[in-house]
C-alpha cells in the first residue's frame, strides 16, 4: 500500500494519494500535501478545506461541487461562489485536489 511520510509518521494513502482514514488528518499534513504539489495554502484555500471537512463530518461524503459553490457563495459572497474561483484555487479541480488536502476519500459510482 502506498504511504505518505510526514514528521516521522507514516500515513496510508490510496493509489492516487488520498488518505485512507480521514480521521488521521491534520492541518500540517494538508500543508505538506500541497507543498509536495508545489502549492502554498492561503486562507482562501483553508476556507474551502475547512468547509469540506465540516461537510464530511456531517454527511460522510465530500460535497459535490455544486453544493460547494453554493455554500461558499452563502458564506463568502457570490463573487467567490463560482466554479471559476474554485478552479483558480485548485487548478486540478476542487473535487479532486481540495478533497485530497482535506483528507477525504474520492466518491465512486456513476459519477
Amino acid at each position: 500500500m502506498p504511504t505518505l511520510e510526514f514528521e516521522g509518521k507514516t500515513y496510508d494513502v490510496d493509489e492516487e494519494g488520498y488518505l485512507n482514514d480521514w480521521q488521521v488528518w491534520s492541518e500540517p499534513l494538508a500543508g505538506q500535501m500541497a507543498k509536495l504539489d508545489g502549492l502554498e495554502l492561503s486562507d482562501a484555500h483553508w476556507d474551502v478545506i475547512r468547509f469540506l471537512r465540516d461537510y464530511f463530518q456531517k454527511y460522510q461524503i465530500a460535497p459535490m461541487i455544486k453544493i460547494l459553490v453554493k455554500e461558499i457563495a452563502k458564506t463568502m459572497g457570490p463573487e467567490k461562489g463560482n466554479t471559476k474561483y474554485l478552479y483558480e484555487l485548485y487548478p486540478a479541480g476542487p473535487a479532486k485536489q481540495a478533497c485530497r488536502y482535506a483528507g477525504l476519500p474520492k466518491p465512486t459510482g456513476c459519477v
Binding site: Y59, Q60, G109
Partner: peptide, 28 residues
C-alpha cells in the same frame, strides 16, 4: 477493481453506490 467494489460495499451499507446516508440524501 477498486472502482467497482467501492460502490458495491457502499451500496450494501447505505443502499447507494456513493455511500450517501439518509440525511445526506435529504439534504442533497
Amino acid at each position: 477493481t477498486d472502482w467497482t467494489m467501492g460502490p458495491v460495499a457502499n451500496c450494501y451499507r447505505t443502499g447507494n453506490h456513493l455511500g450517501l446516508e439518509p440525511h445526506t440524501i435529504k439534504s442533497i
